[in-house]
Amino acid sequence: MNLTLVEAINDSLHTAMANDDRVIVYGEDVAESGGVFRSTQGLKEEFGNERVLDTPITEIAIAGTAVGLAMQGYRPVVEIQFSGFIPPTFNQLVSNASRIRWRTRGQHSAPMVIRTPYGGGVRALEHHSESLEAAYSHVPGLQVVIPSTPYDTKGLLQSAIENPDPVLFLEPKRLYRTFREQVPEEKYTVPLGKAKVRKEGEDISVISWGSTMNDTIEAAMNVEEERNVSIEVIDIRTLSPLDRDTIIDSIKKTGKATVVHEGPKSGGFAGELIASINEDALMHLESPIQRITGFDTPIPMLAMEDYYLPNPPRIEEGIKRALDVKGGV
């Protein structure tokens, strides 16, 4: 099948529900209308209104009932309409879902998935374009997954649904219909906690995920053509658990690094990546690691998004800064 990212989500949900009667889907507008972005289109017609339900506009209730259902043997896959609406669920995620296994000494868990579109680039309203993945990756027991391709999306979502612990599945909505990719019709999984080397290289490692992946690859190819260098691009895919081994192995090979993400710079996940590199590969670094990120402001609306979001020219400049430093850190 040649699918877009949002079609891969829909196909993954159809596959999971067909293979496991415990999987239920609910959230705001997911049943009758098939979701704001049509990611749940057709589910109600195929699986009925006992497994696909519309809810009131109350994110805390959506997350809270998912915890209870998960503990009772179901596999709820709930949708928060936009990631900017997750803060009301924070108590449920931090105090309940993520702690159940720890609190009960392994007797219970909360195998639930919270799906939500995240990030900017679609000219949305306030609270519709946040990239706050770093905040959620700090929560022990909560796994944070961000795909960037249709193939990975279907496989990672299958793994998230089968996972014994809660997963926050952040979907880069500006990639929903950007491109198509061949996706198998049958069920398959992509393991959580395993990064993907999108492009092999020797001179610098560029690390990114989710919404900025396509721009990062484009920028890397532009710099390669201009500078006659070889650039490795890594898609981490899951922030928690994080595949540090793939990152460290790449740094040991290239000696230089740049991290790209859409969220604000201060406290962003790039800081965790840089700290991990400093702990395990500092002596291999030949230059300070560069960060190309959003700014320390709320994401602006409408045309100002283009200034806020890391774009290929800004990413290219960051890669060049890392390449140009000589003589080690």
Rank of each mutant, 00 (worst) to 15 (best):
N91K: 06
I100Y: 08
P184I: 14
F169K: 04
V6L: 00
K253V: 10
E186K: 06
V94E: 06
R105K: 08
T238A: 13
S131E: 06
D152H: 12
E32C: 06
S137Q: 09
R51N: 06
A70L: 03
L192F: 02
K253G: 10
E45M: 02
I86D: 00
T189D: 04
I217Y: 06
E224V: 01
E225K: 15
H127G: 01
G35T: 09
L309F: 01
L142A: 10
G73A: 03
Q81N: 05
E224Q: 06
E316M: 14
D324I: 08
I60A: 14
G48C: 02
A70W: 08
L168V: 12
P191M: 05
D29A: 07
I146L: 14
R115I: 15
I299D: 01
E186V: 13
G42I: 13
R227W: 10
M301W: 00
T297M: 04
E202F: 07
V67R: 09
L43F: 02
K326V: 14
E79H: 10
D165T: 12
Q143H: 15
L3S: 07
L5C: 04
R51C: 08
M112Y: 11
L43T: 13
G48D: 01
L302T: 13
H138F: 06
L309N: 00
L168T: 07
I204D: 00
V325S: 02
E186P: 00
F269L: 12
L175W: 09
K173M: 08
M301G: 14
A275C: 09
H14D: 11
V52H: 10
Q290I: 13
P288F: 02
P111F: 02
S250M: 04
A219M: 07
E185F: 05
V77W: 00
E279T: 01
H261Q: 10
F269H: 14
V183F: 11
D29G: 04
K265N: 14
E262Y: 01
I315R: 11
G35Q: 08
V183S: 11
F179Q: 13
V94R: 08
G318C: 07
K44S: 11
R105C: 07
P150Q: 12
M304I: 04
G84H: 03
D165Y: 12
S129M: 11
Q290W: 03
E59H: 06
H261S: 09
E305N: 05
Y74V: 00
Y26Q: 10
M221H: 01
I236K: 01
V229P: 00
R198V: 06
R75F: 05
V139I: 15
N10G: 10
